[in-house]
Design a protein around this nucleic acid. Structure first.
Lengths: 196, 196
DNA sequence: GTCTATAGTGCGATAGAC
DNA sequence: GTCTATCGCACTATAGAC
């Protein structure tokens, strides 16, 4: 395992997930991950600002897919229709082949509060970025933030369902259903106007 | 400042906020906080599992207020009406006298990603607990989680507005408005049924 | 690549409350 | 005496400075 083997980042990420899954996140040191792929601890921290970050790659592309979905919606589309478009675009980042990998990664995250915190932070960052994209389309506040956060919530719930044991529907299909449920929930309330 | 002065916890919390606000979170060590109130670093970590936690007290009571609001709603109330009740109860935890304190605390959090992560985690925990309370009322999934997460989102947006410079309305009033906006956003979409 | 500060833990000793 | 809060010390790993 030479000094200039290519793909150091990717090898570190793969080794990290495997070690985290077998030994646990706390019980795995950054030095061990580095050693597993023939690198030093110092190199690990040159690639990832902290130990948790090694599990959160591909965020940039995922976020971009979301934004692309926003921009793909025709002008004058209602905020939630824009969100629906963004969800479909984002879902394409998780084809069915990736499901078992996602399950493994999520089970590691679910067992470690520090990793959960990082994940929530990433999701919050997503909402912030989407809100900005909505404002760029002329949607005001707090509608933009509400729509963006709702989109993130729907995505989160759909993703959780997608990796549940026995689930076979695509993420896109599930996301669509969950968004529908959100509309029913709030729409039904609005229809009868019980709120003063 | 003796070994058995009462209220060690509270004194640590107050000293921590002050030091964080003046020097910054990173630039303040746990030892310094402890020293400021005549205790040792080891004692600090007996009270707070980590350095961030010192800023997140009163969570238990806040969460309880939310749950009380859920349980105060009459049976058969729609999920979002229950959330409206919970929001009003939770808002009572932040009377206007607390606004300037909240502003100071939030400005510290806003400047430190690790603190933001912790805050998001607490908010996510809130949503999880509220969702459980909704399920206990017979509300199914994903409606319970959607409603709870929406409630957390609305609370977050309202709280941000509440501490904004020049804002004078009560948190309860703002939360009510934001919830209304959410209903308009989703209700309008449902009315015209543009989603297949 | 080395060196260091700090977070956070484990364990045993001690000081006071009761 | 018991119980609990505090302390002191040794230790590891993270993360950043040099």
């Amino acid at each position: 395992m030479g000094r200039w083997e290519p793909g150091a980042r990717e090898r570190l990420q793969a080794a990290a997930l495997e070690l985290f899954a077998t030994r646990g996140f706390e019980q795995t040191t950054a030095a061990e991950i580095a050693q597993a792929v023939g690198l030093t601890e110092r190199t690990f921290f040159r690639h990832f600002s902290d130990k948790r970050e090694v599990l959160f790659f591909g965020q940039q592309e995922f976020l971009q897919a979301f934004i692309d979905g926003v921009e793909a919606a025709p002008p004058e589309t209602s905020p939630l229709e824009v969100i629906a478009s963004a969800l479909q675009a984002a879902a394409s980042f998780f084809p069915d082949e990736r499901r078992s990998y996602s399950r493994m990664r999520q089970s590691v995250i679910d067992q470690n509060p520090p990793l959960q915190e990082r994940e929530l932070h990433k999701l919050a960052g997503l909402a912030t970025t989407v809100a900005a994209a909505l404002r760029a389309r002329g949607i005001g506040e707090p509608a933009a933030t509400l729509a963006a956060e709702s989109g993130a919530t729907v995505f989160g719930i759909a993703f959780t369902q997608w990796i549940r044991d026995g689930e076979t529907r695509s993420l896109a299909a599930i996301a669509s259903d969950v968004l529908r449920e959100l509309l029913d929930l709030t729409g039904a309330a609005t229809a009868s106007r019980p709120f003063p």
